[in-house]
Simulated assay, not measured.
Amino acid sequence: MSKRLAGKTALVTGATSNIGRAIAEVFAAEGAHVAVSGRSAERGGEVVDGIRARGGRADFVRADLDGTAAASRALAEEAARVLGGRIDVLVNNAGIYPGDTTAATDEKTFDRVYAVNVKAPFFLTAAIAPAMAQAGGGAIINLGSWIAPLGIPIGALYSSTKGAVETLTRAWAAEFGPSGVRVNAISPGVVQAFAPGDEHPAEAMMKGTPAGRTGTPDAIADAAVYLAGDESSFVHGIVLDVDGGRTTTAVIAA
Rank of each mutant, 00 (worst) to 15 (best):
L65F: 12
G20A: 03
I186E: 01
I147H: 02
I51G: 00
R86H: 14
W146D: 11
I154C: 00
P153G: 00
A148L: 05
E78N: 13
A135C: 00
I252T: 12
S232G: 10
I186L: 10
D64K: 15
G151D: 07
V91A: 02
G99S: 14
T109I: 11
N92G: 03
T102F: 13
D64H: 15
D106F: 12
D59M: 10
D59K: 07
Q134F: 01
A79T: 00
V89T: 09
P217I: 12
V26A: 03
N92F: 01
I128H: 01
R73I: 11
A28W: 00
L90S: 10
A41I: 12
T248F: 02
I152R: 14
P210E: 07
G45P: 03
V118Q: 04
A71H: 06
T161P: 06
G177A: 13
L65G: 09
T9D: 01
A80N: 01
A29G: 14
F234Y: 15
L143S: 02
L150W: 11
N117A: 07
K119M: 12
E203D: 13
R86T: 12
D243S: 06
G237K: 15
I152C: 00
A41H: 10
I252K: 10
V116A: 13
D88V: 03
V235Q: 05
G215I: 03
T248R: 11
V225N: 04
S145G: 06
L83T: 08
T248M: 13
D243W: 02
I19R: 01
V36K: 07
D100Q: 12
Q192W: 14
A6C: 09
M205G: 04
V190L: 04
V165R: 03
M206W: 04
I252Y: 10
N184K: 03
Y97N: 15
F123L: 06
R57H: 13
T214D: 02
R54G: 15
S37H: 09
R62S: 14
R86Y: 02
D230E: 15
V191Y: 04
I87W: 01
V235A: 02
I51Y: 05
A63M: 08
V48N: 04
A202C: 09
A6N: 10
A103Y: 02
P196I: 06
V190H: 07
P121M: 06
G67M: 07
R52V: 14
E30N: 12
I154S: 09
R73P: 09
H33G: 06
D106W: 11
K108L: 15
G67D: 12
A133T: 04
A120H: 04
R54Q: 12
D222G: 07
G38C: 07
I147G: 00
V191I: 15
P217H: 08
A228S: 01
T109C: 08
H200M: 01
S145L: 00
A223G: 10
V181I: 08
A41Q: 15
V165K: 03
G45K: 11
N18P: 01
